[in-house]
Design a protein around this nucleic acid. Structure first.
Lengths: 336, 336
DNA sequence: ATTGACAGCCAAAACGTTTTGGACTATAAT
DNA sequence: ATTATAGTCCAAAACGTTTTGGCTGTCAAT
């Protein structure tokens, strides 16, 4: 069926060794032979069998990326942008991306292990790090190259890119405090996620410094989706003394919160302020446009991939831990 | 480094043949041997080298999916949901997904070709079909298994799943007509995309049947993003006689259009109606919630993947072409 | 005439599996 | 005592590459 190096050897009358070497620019084949081999290869439509190549070379030129899907309707714009970033760098360096979907939990590590020992990938891009992240321990111990988007608690001896969520939320919360808000509520992602804890630290610090307290009822947990943001906001709005400002741990939940406010007939930005984190494209187009903290997802995907490839290739890394300074994006959802 | 079948053979004192057969449930190995092999394999942490396995078996258990990325900020919630659907079925049947990013154009087919002849994938899931789609011609001719989300012009002799966009838009447009709208504008995706043409047919037919004409200036093209939807809507609103209703070819553009309307101080659903297509999660949470046509992206991803796997395995397909009947979702963006 | 250097070529091993086509032993049937 | 049968086992080939460690012939220098 598919044409192999053997077919070319037969056609050209050379050995398969010579064909292989001719195609790879070795200098122990004569120019005429090389030219002939190349011509025949092209004529016959030869493409190397990557499986065989990889088996022999003991590397896969493939990067693993495991999507932490929760439930069926999984539609986080975050991931398509991130994946596009990974893809752009991967393509640039001739790598493929092997994607699996696997919810966090029991079988998770097994998937990672299988991909590694099964020689399917050369390394991993991790995403959504948890405070105690078994994946990181596992990969660190087994010596598999990996990079992470996000940090963990404990020792940070692995390569990562992260945005300083504490600083971002600090800026954002301060912005709200400066605008006079004192009853500020926070919708947090599950605290097991490292960035959730991080962002919460930022909120907390800003409030503490201003001497503002946040009652227990003002701290609610959402699942990162619009739907859960809306439900969380509904609860907040039903409190005896509802907040005058709601900060959400990500934009999707902030947008959900906006819709909960609007369904009550209140005006976001006037009656109540809303802010998010991520600056997904949607946030610019919402009504009112959402005040948020920018995160360059696409670029982070690119950076991580390039770092990973360097690690795989044993090339030096100029900086193996990158903490990005967040940028506050002020729009109208917290008032004019 | 990694433990191979050979190591197990050495340890157990059996041949590699026997080890292989023991691990695969052949009945020509004694129960004791089988048990011993299995125990040792587990002890040593054996995982088969998938590269070797695949090279030998001449199949890859991998599905190819090539993301048609346009430009750097590529953040379409559509794709993460679709990918999650593919992933769920792929995992179920033990397949992996190989993802590449590649904009439509010159080098596109080369990527497909390389993945096939390089034995990286057993088949493809195609997405965003174009009216004249070179990918389909190529795959059809080379006999590679594939399934497509969407149809093309010309002969439809390949397996696909699609939602009847013409019917969906027909229903939607009729809904607007029934509500008294006569000045209806349409923001279309690029007409080279099959679903764009399809949906436009539906709009057109509804208008024709009602004897309503759509002036040239009311038909504008967007690039499927919020940003382009907003820009298109701005143009429409600046017309001497602006439309009273705007239909967008997808939800993202509809949401962009809503923001253009709101930035003019107009009220969506009262001053002007807006409708979209897709029913992405965002549409439910927008303000006002968007009237749209539902598309079960996740399920479509699943269906396509299962179809593809059946084709790869030469199993019969109960129906190889599926056209889904769309469901109109009426919310508030076209009035109460 | 020998030696050395070099250009051009190739057989065979290796990567880790699965499968083919037996071989061997013990027991049962003739 | 021979022949079948069944139960275990295995050597070798195959999948398509790359790499190792040669070999052969030519030419120039000694």
């Amino acid at each position: 069926m598919a044409v192999t190096i053997k077919d070319i050897a037969k056609k050209t009358g050379k050995s398969i060794t010579t064909v292989s070497r001719a195609l790879h620019g070795y200098n122990d084949v004569s120019p005429e032979t090389r030219e002939m081999v190349e011509r025949v290869a092209k004529e016959m439509g030869y493409t190397p069998n990557l499986l065989a190549q990889r088996l022999q070379k003991q590397r896969t030129d493939t990067i693993g990326f495991i999507l932490p899907t929760f439930g069926p309707r999984f539609s986080d714009p975050f991931f398509s942008e991130f994946l596009a970033g990974i893809g752009s760098s991967a393509t640039k360096y001739g790598y493929d991306i092997l994607v699996s979907t696997q919810p966090p939990g029991e079988k998770e590590l097994e998937v990672y292990r299988k991909k590694v020992t099964g020689r399917q990938v050369d390394g991993f891009v991790l995403v959504r790090t948890r405070c105690q992240d078994p994946r990181i321990n596992f990969l660190r111990e087994s010596g598999v190259p990996f990079v992470a988007f996000g940090r963990t608690e404990g020792e940070l001896d692995y390569p990562f890119v992260d945005e300083d969520g504490a600083d971002g939320m600090f800026q954002l919360t301060k912005h709200l405090l400066e605008r006079g808000h004192r009853r500020i509520a926070y919708i947090t992602p599950p605290m097991a996620l490292m960035f959730a804890r991080d962002r919460w630290q930022g909120v907390k610090r800003a409030l503490d410094e201003a001497g503002v307290s946040l009652p227990d009822a003002y701290l609610v947990t959402g699942e990162l989706t619009q739907r859960s943001g809306r439900e969380a906001a509904r609860r907040l709005l039903s409190l005896p003394t509802p907040p005058t400002a709601i900060i959400a741990g990500n934009d999707l939940m902030a947008l959900g919160a906006m819709s909960a406010i609007q369904e009550r007939g209140l005006v976001v930005g006037e009656d109540i302020a809303v802010a998010g984190f991520d600056d997904i494209p949607m946030s610019e187009a919402s009504h009112p446009p959402l005040t948020t903290v920018h995160q360059p997802i696409y670029e982070i995907g690119q950076m991580l991939t390039e770092m990973l490839i360097k690690i795989i290739r044993n090339q030096p890394l100029e900086s193996q831990q990158i903490l990005l300074r967040p940028q506050l994006i002020i729009r109208q959802s917290c008032g004019e």
